[in-house]
Write a protein that binds this DNA or RNA. Structure first.
Lengths: 246, 246
DNA sequence: CGGACTAACCTGTCTGGACAAGTGGATTTA
DNA sequence: TAAATCCACTTGTCCAGACAGGTTAGTCCG
C-alpha cells in the first residue's frame, strides 16, 4: 500500500484535475489539510511537496500555495519506454530491427556505460513505429551485465525496458541530452522524410537504483512526431543548457 | 543566511565534486551525517533530498545512498536567462532587436499568458548572439502587467529577465516545450545557416512565485549551438514526451 | 486619503522520538 | 555446498511541538 502522503498527493492532484481547486486559486492551508485528512502537518507537507516538485502548485513562505495547473500525467516509466508511452496514449508501438551485434566497447561506449574499453557491449539499431508509421531511429548500447538477456529477447515485440524490469533490471534514473540534428540519407529513408530534415535527438543514459548504467540510447525522432516537455522552478531545477561545442 | 540543510547540501555537493565521495561509492548514513554536522536526522534528510532531486545521489530504502555523479552547476536563473547563462560560461551575450510592438492579444497569446483576448501584449523579436556570433532567434511575448517596463528598457543590452527581476517580477517557474524545426528563409539568413537547417526550438512560459505568467518565448537555436540536459528519476520526474500532432 | 503599524495567519526550519520496511552480511540448517 | 534464517544497520514514514520569518488585511494615525 502506498504511503499516506502519496495518497493525499494523489487526491489533491485529482481535485485539481476536477477543477475543485481551480488554476490561480489558493490551496487550503497546511493546517486545514492536516485536519481534513487527520494527519500531522509534516505529512501534509510531504504530500504538497510532491505537487510542488511536479510544478503543479507554487509555494511561498507566509502565503498559501497557488495552483499552477495540472501537469502531464506521465510517469517516469513512460518516459523511459517508447512502448509504454505509445500504449498509454492509445497508439500501437512497433519495432523493426536493423542490426544487433556484440562487440568490444570503444572509448565512448565505455565512458557512457561506465565499463572498461574492450568489455562486452550489445549494439542494437531499430526503427520504432507508431501505428505502423516510422517515427524514430534508435541506436542502443547495453553493457555486458545485461547482454545475455538482450540477445535472448524478442526485439521486435514489446519494450526492452519492460522486459529488463521483469528480470530485475529496473530503470530508476535518467540523464538526457536533447538537441536537433539533420537526417542522414539513411535516416531519411528509414523515416520517410527528406535528407537534411530536422530530427529531435534524445541521447540518454538509464541507470539502476544503485546507479549502475543499464543502457545508453540515441533516439532520433521525426520532428513532427514528438515534443518534449520539461518543468522547472527555483526550488526544483533539473534542466540545464549546455554548449554544443566543447 | 541560508538554511542549515542548504549549507549541508552545498558541502556535500562540494565533497562529491572534490572526489571525497567518489562516483559509485556510498554516502555516509544519515545518522553519521547528523552526528558530523550536529543536526537532527530530519535536517540531514532535507539536505540529501536536495541532492537526490538533482540526480546527484541515488536512494533506496534500507541501503546507504550511492553517489551518481556531479551535476551541471546550472541555476534556475541561468536556464531562464540567456544572458546570465552566457556570462557565467565566459561568453559575451548580445542582442539585436528586430521588432517591438504593443498590440491586442490574439487567442493563442491570451491562452499562453492567461490574459483576455484583446488585452495589451508586447511582442518582441531579437537575434541573440554569443561572442558576436548569432545563435538564436527569439520571439517573446509579455503581458500588459510588465508592458511599460519592457518598453522603457534598453533591449539591446542585458537581460530582460534580470531587469524585470530587479523590478520585482521574479521568474519562479518555467514550463518548456522542446522540439526540432526547420529554419525558415528569414531565420536562416539571420543565423547564417542554410534554409531548412535544423533548429532546436524551446518554447517556454515563465511565471512569478504566485503563478502569474510573466513571459512567453519561442527561442530557436542553431543546432550546433546548444544541447539541453535534463535529469529525471522514479522519485522526481518533470519530463514528458508529448505527441506533436494533437 | 494615504501611509505606517499591527495582529492574525501561514509556510519554512528544526528537533527528538517511534516504528515500519528493506538491505546485506553472517550464521545456521538441510 | 546451497538455501534458509537471522540480525544489525539503514532508510522511509509519521507524529507533536517550537520558533522564525514572510504575507495579508485591517486599523490607526497624520
Amino acid at each position: 500500500m502506498a504511503a499516506r502522503y502519496q495518497q493525499i498527493a494523489q487526491e489533491l492532484r485529482e481535485a485539481i484535475r476536477q477543477g475543485e481547486y481551480a488554476i490561480g486559486t489558493l490551496l487550503p492551508s497546511e493546517g486545514d489539510l492536516a485536519a481534513r485528512y487527520a494527519v500531522s502537518r509534516g505529512t501534509v507537507r510531504q504530500a504538497v511537496a510532491v505537487l510542488e516538485q511536479d510544478g503543479s502548485v507554487a509555494a511561498r513562505q507566509g502565503a498559501r500555495r497557488v495552483v499552477l495547473g495540472e501537469v502531464p500525467t506521465h510517469s517516469f516509466a513512460e518516459m523511459q519506454s517508447f512502448s509504454m508511452w505509445a500504449t498509454s496514449r492509445g497508439h500501437v508501438p512497433g519495432a523493426k530491427v536493423l542490426s544487433v551485434e556484440v562487440g568490444a566497447a570503444r572509448q565512448e561506449e565505455a565512458d557512457r556505460l561506465r565499463i572498461n574499453v574492450g568489455d562486452d557491449v550489445v549494439r542494437l539499431q531499430r526503427i520504432r513505429t507508431l501505428d505502423d508509421e516510422p517515427v524514430m531511429v534508435e541506436r542502443s548500447f547495453f553493457p555486458g551485465l545485461v547482454a545475455e538477456h538482450i540477445l535472448a529477447m524478442d526485439l521486435t515485440a514489446g519494450s526492452i525496458t519492460e522486459q529488463l524490469t521483469a528480470l530485475g533490471f529496473v530503470h530508476a534514473h535518467g540523464d538526457h541530452l536533447i538537441d536537433a540534428v539533420s537526417a542522414t540519407t539513411l535516416e531519411a529513408r528509414l523515416l520517410g522524410v527528406r535528407r537534411g530534415s530536422p530530427l529531435l535527438r534524445q541521447r540518454w543514459l538509464a541507470s539502476s537504483p544503485t546507479g549502475q548504467p543499464l543502457a545508453w540510447s540515441e533516439d532520433s525522432y521525426r520532428h513532427d512526431a514528438v515534443i518534449i516537455n520539461v518543468r522547472n522552478s527555483m526550488s526544483a531545477n533539473t534542466l540545464a543548457r549546455l554548449s554544443a561545442r566543447s
